[in-house]
Design a protein around this nucleic acid. Structure first.
Lengths: 108, 108
DNA sequence: GCCTCCTATTATGTAATCCGTAGTCGGATT
DNA sequence: AATCCGACTACGGATTACATAATAGGAGGC
């Protein structure tokens, strides 16, 4: 039943990532550790491309300490554009919650 | 900004589908119409395989009227297993809502 | 100086999913 | 019988997900 949720949870985690990037710097290993702490596993092959895509789309801004080699920690923070996306997502989560959890019938 | 949401919304719609399948019969065109009514477009090439996968996984039970040819409407309803998944998902949505929308810090 | 462990990201190949467009089929309408 | 409508199917390409293995610098120990 655990991998049942995977397909959905990945989306949720993405939202979490944006949420946290709003107030702190986020990087790959941190996310991996946080999720593990909560009993979930996400592999590098899933997570890093994901962060990278978020940067490409302009949701996250990358900052890496200079002169620290090719494997240096990459810290991401939310951009203005990412903030816009996050705001929309929050509205969507609110709606989803209302309809699916609280059962308010807004129709689909 | 609209396709921004697509990646996330598709997951939400899947949850909606399970939610509705709990209390009524759901079929492809109905979902497409409902989403369109709310301003979203999902193409057959996305939706039908999705419903099909949900059936494969045992979340939905297929019922098709007999002797109605290869293009007959396929109606799905929630299985017991699907109900279990939906329950888990509701909890997850609740958590997501608490943390990301209401800002209750449960960490990550 | 060298070995080892730890933190991090990168590389890579395969599988699964997503997507739009075009196609098919039966029934109702005209 | 010709057309339209409601529904699903087929298909090919693009994107995303995934696990595993590889790489690279830094800190300690000796």
């Amino acid at each position: 039943m655990r991998d049942v949720e995977r397909e959905f949870l990945l989306s949720f985690w993405k939202i979490h990532i944006l949420h946290h990037a709003e107030t702190r710097h986020v990087f790959g290993q941190w996310v991996i550790r946080e999720l593990r702490r909560h009993g979930y596993e996400v592999s590098p092959g899933t997570l890093y491309p994901l962060l990278s895509r978020m940067e490409e789309r302009g949701w996250l801004k990358l900052k890496v300490a200079p002169d620290t080699g090719p494997r240096a920690r990459k810290e991401y923070s939310l951009t203005k554009r990412g903030k816009g996306v996050l705001t929309l997502l929050r509205e969507q989560v609110e709606e989803l919650h209302c309809e699916v959890v609280l059962g308010k019938e807004n129709e689909l």
